[in-house]
């Protein structure tokens, strides 16, 4: 009984009815990412960041000084939790159920995001690998650049529907499509 609830993504109803074939501008909703919030204890910021960077298959998102989001789509939450538990001077908490991971990519992605965030996303100002917390569609989200035309957005679960609808609206002129993705 609980299994069917567990597998139901918060954006399930929003995505029903969208065409399955992805256009060049595409928004992927990752079904079950492992997302952990990690805080470094005072004085351990540099060593914790180094340890986090060495975790294989996990992407580090900067939130604030000494605070990160560790995102992994390759490993499950339990595996990541064990790896994070081995790091000294850090506290980690599982946010996988509390956050929604969106990936947007395509040739017009910056034009779409220009209507969602108030941050300069030119490669000179926001290079590949850069990430920060910012307002995205009026919601405090974390945005990371994963490629020249690819971004990852992490939003709180309860705001995911509103952010998703607004992003699809902003992407309509560029024929933005959306679908679930496993990783």
């Amino acid at each position: 009984m609980s299994l069917t609830l567990y597998h139901r993504h918060v954006l399930e109803d929003y995505l029903a009815g969208f065409e399955a074939k992805a256009n060049p501008n595409h928004l992927s909703v990752i079904r079950r990412p492992a997302i952990f919030s990690v805080l470094a204890h005072r004085g351990n910021e540099a060593s914790v960041k180094q340890a986090l960077n060495s975790i294989e298959g996990a992407l580090l998102h900067d939130c604030a000084p000494g605070e990160w989001l560790v995102v992994s789509t390759a490993s499950g939450a339990a595996v990541v939790e064990n790896l994070l538990g081995e790091i000294t001077g850090a506290s980690a908490i599982d946010q996988s159920d509390g956050r929604v991971l969106l990936r947007i990519s395509g040739p017009n992605v910056r034009k779409i995001l220009a209507k969602c965030v108030a941050v300069d996303l030119h490669p000179d100002a926001f290079s590949i690998g850069a990430s920060a917390n910012m307002l995205c569609c009026h919601v405090a989200a974390n945005l990371a650049r994963t490629g020249a035309e690819a971004f990852e957005i992490i939003v709180p679960r309860s705001f995911a529907g509103s952010v998703f609808e607004e992003m699809m609206e902003m992407g309509r002129e560029f024929a933005l499509t959306a679908a679930f993705a496993e990783w």
Partner: peptide, 11 residues
């Protein structure tokens, strides 16, 4: 100093 130039709505 941590995030760069941001609009006042974020504060």
């Amino acid at each position: 100093p941590h995030c760069g130039t941001r609009p006042k709505e974020e504060f």
